[in-house]
Design a protein around this nucleic acid. Structure first.
Lengths: 336, 336
DNA sequence: GAAGAAACTGGGAGCGCTTCCAGTGAAGGT
DNA sequence: ACCTTCACTGGAAGCGCTCCCAGTTTCTTC
């Protein structure tokens, strides 16, 4: 950081050097029409000579467009972003944003301050668009976002609330697939550990479980409500074992919880999949490495990010995209 | 996105309602001196009544400060960010930025476009500061960043290049710890699989390995160069086995590679840690769940992010912080 | 060759905020 | 009572860029 902050080259200087007006220079920068070839070239040359790069801030002020969108994770847990899930989403989002001029602002709205800031962005258009993830059912931000003037697309859906624009994975379908698979392999006393019931993913997966058992005519009452965490999964499994010692399979609402559950199962002396089959959801890297490797439902996470970004772009362009539900598929491994 | 984009409340409106000049209003917003208590209160009230929120863009233009810093990951691999490592760094960075007014821009400079953009940010001060991660030795961005007018702090260091401001983990010390541990447990034919040798982390860990063996008076020639990936680790292990079938331990430059190496080891019929002890580096979550659980060197990743942010803040404030090296520690598990 | 259309061109008014500066008046000192 | 001193105050000049608009030039077409 030297002191001689060499002043930025401005449009005026470019215009002067090219011998044209600032308006003309601006036009060629934004390649708008109504500039003669000669001037266009002159400006082009001046730009190169001077190494001119437009000042994004000034442009933003003049055009009333920020030139940035935010990817927001709203949660009470500062560590959520630590979930590899989000990194994947971010990669997807980035891949499509990279083709545009838009910056990606990361808002981990995990403290009150963060929430407030996100709220202000939503209310006062401090970004051209917002992608909102991991909303809990009663998060007031959901409604604020829905009412906002700035384009918002949800990633996943809160329970009890269907946003206008969202992209989600087919949680219900995936859960049904998983449960059907358990049925098909001869299990009859199939339990489930759900995710948080105030998140769409939690309830949808539970419904998928119910769907499959209803069709098969099996009892769907072996359920314990979990919280998506590994420890929570362990606790839930203990409770399940206590209340339904006869179970021969369990569909778990997330891989994290499934890992906790498997540990408890093993500690209790049950073999997997001999005594009880386990299938999770998400297909995190870890699932491949557990003992035994975990059967799970895989969702295209990077695609989710990509589609969110695309949908947001469409919204910004003034279109009205329809919500998107991405397919999930069963990945069968040794635990079932 | 309704059409009635209710125009934003401006400072002028606040001033008018409070019956003061715009200058005065501006002063109280930025709580600068030279405003009487009476006016201050009046403005305060107007702000609340109107729900005024300053326009960040306009402010940025006037103050010549962007109000945002970027966290950049420069790499040729679009998937790098998928490494849970970065998510952790981001969480750390966010935790300190949350206390400030600064936005966090994520730059996954993974394509040519991305690199170019990052370069422009660096050259034309489109951000108040930059945190740069995962630089390869010959990445031209390193030099550009170092010469830039905008404050830059490096996360980790490229090989052959010591940036002015950086925070890094004590890779060499950690590697030495790991290797000493192998020595202490009676191993004598200790091999290593290195990381990419154009990254500081790669070379430093290799040196740590050499340090320990030199002190112990053991042979340090059983080395194969890896690339930090799981497959690369597997290939490296195969080569090691072929060239040094007598090895009884291997220090691997990253957990990812260690996982690949363990698979190859098992496939080759060697028991872990019976025949050969394995220790990795990073302590990714996965390390806890491998079979057997992987001994590894843990580094405080979130702290790294936090310290990078803090250092950047200091730089922006005009201070001259000194580089920081964070401690690493050995986590002993069943693989050694 | 004249009229009308079409394509350029540059002046200037902002976008919303900060900040310099000259001016005002009250408080303090002698 | 007079002169400083100093906290206020608001007007005005930008920050760098976009874009409307009126004026000018060039091109068509009879």
């Amino acid at each position: 950081m030297t002191d001689q902050l060499k002043r930025q080259v401005t449009l005026d200087e470019v215009a002067e050097r090219a011998g044209v007006s600032r308006s003309a220079a601006s036009r060629v920068i934004n390649n708008a029409p109504h500039v003669s070839k000669a001037k266009r070239d002159a400006v082009q040359r001046a730009v190169n000579d001077l190494g001119y790069v437009p000042n994004a801030t000034a442009r933003a002020l003049a055009t009333q467009q920020v030139g940035a969108v935010v990817l927001a994770i709203s949660s009470d847990n500062p560590q959520v972003f630590t979930d590899p899930f989000f990194a994947d989403v971010a990669v997807g989002v980035n891949s499509v944003l990279e083709e545009t001029e838009l910056e990606l602002i990361l808002q981990l709205a995990t403290s009150t301050r963060g929430q407030t800031r996100l709220e202000q962005v939503l209310r006062t258009r401090q970004a051209d668009g917002v992608m909102l993830m991991s909303m809990h059912g009663d998060d007031p931000l959901a409604q604020i976002a829905e009412d906002s003037d700035v384009p918002v697309v949800f990633g996943g859906t809160p329970a009890n609330f269907e946003p206008r624009y969202y992209v989600d994975a087919d949680n219900r379908g995936g859960a049904r697939l998983a449960t059907e698979h358990l049925v098909a392999t001869g299990r009859t006393r199939i339990a489930t550990i759900t995710g948080r019931m105030d998140e769409g993913a939690g309830t949808a997966r539970y419904r998928g479980y119910q769907d499959a058992l209803a069709v098969a005519g099996l009892d769907a009452s072996r359920v314990v409500y979990g919280d998506f965490s590994e420890e929570g999964g362990g606790r839930a499994m203990e409770q399940l074992l206590a209340e339904h010692p006869d179970l021969d399979a369990v569909f778990v609402g997330s891989d994290q919880m499934a890992i906790g559950a498997m540990r408890v199962l093993k500690d209790a002396g049950r073999t997997i999949p001999g005594d009880v089959a386990v299938v999770g959801f998400n297909d995190v890297v870890l699932a491949r490495h557990t003992e035994p490797p975990l059967s799970t439902v895989s969702q295209p996470i990077q695609s989710l990010g990509r589609e969110m970004a695309r949908m947001l772009l469409a919204l910004i362009a003034g279109e009205s995209p329809t919500p998107l539900i991405l397919p999930t598929r069963l990945v069968r491994r040794a635990s079932s």
